[in-house]
Write a protein that binds this DNA or RNA. Sequence first.
DNA 1: CTAATTCCTCAAGCAAGCTTGAGGTCAAAC
DNA 2: GTTTGACCTCAAGCTTGCTTGAGGAATTAG
Lengths: 151, 151
Amino acid sequence: MTTKTPRRGAISATKQALSVGDVARRSGVAVSTLHFYETKGLVQSWRNAGNQRRYTRDVLRCVAVIKIAQRTGVPLTEIREALAALPDSRTPTAADWRRLSERWRTALDERIAQLTLLRDQLDGCIGCGCLSLSQCPLRNPGDVLGGNEED
Amino acid sequence: MTTKTPRRGAISATKQALSVGDVARRSGVAVSTLHFYETKGLVQSWRNAGNQRRYTRDVLRCVAVIKIAQRTGVPLTEIREALAALPDSRTPTAADWRRLSERWRTALDERIAQLTLLRDQLDGCIGCGCLSLSQCPLRNPGDVLGGNEED
DNA sequence: CTAATTCCTCAAGCAAGCTTGAGGTCAAAC
DNA sequence: GTTTGACCTCAAGCTTGCTTGAGGAATTAG
């Protein structure tokens, strides 16, 4: 009874095609998100006879990577580009993923450095009153604003 | 000739009311942004006889603080709440600002810690292949997703 | 006084990242 | 074989943080 006709979610033991619901359950994102990612070119699928999406198991890692990248602050368009650099026809290898990792690792390092600098400046500046002076490093991180004249 | 009728931008020498344009120029944000912040309760102004906005110089520090808080990742609603905790009727003191600083400093510390953890895990995990395993720390940072069954 | 700025108030739009809903099909459980 | 649940395709909506534009009033330079 339990092994005759495999239920959804256990199907991968027999065949490795996953339905969108399978992927949603296993990756923790909503079905609508998977549809959305597909329109954005972040994940791929093919269709079965009844026009339903089918995925390889690779998509699970893909989604995991997308979510990790998002946590590092990478926007979807950039994630798409990075994923596009992966081999199209074969399952990505560990080395492929490592390249992505290194790419984002650098961005992450920078972001952490920025925030750390901000934190240190926050301690020194915001409470002391210098925020109102034009020479405060917090005021104008990249000299982006116009001159502060007599302020 | 130069001191008779003060030009915009030099007006603060005589009177300390700033027009929205003055504030925009000095704080580096667009006029529309100041309008927007006002609708969100982030900054305050009064109106002159001709219904034009007038600001005290305090608003400059306010805007500076808003921008800093945004850089730390604090959303406007939270910034609004924090600013609302400042004394309404008097110019905030250094101690007032320091309280804000400490509040966000904590959030910033946490965010930095998160990203640092993520970075370390990224090095260890993404390239090695463990991403597909349910025990990978990157997969499910807070045990938020459902069980990964046999994956 | 006139012309050039600046300012005003809505209303709508934009970008990112999704979600929700309507209306309809497909598949699988009994 | 019928009924439930999973899927499908648009289209529209939502949140955050603003910008842009239209139409009109106030201010300021000369």
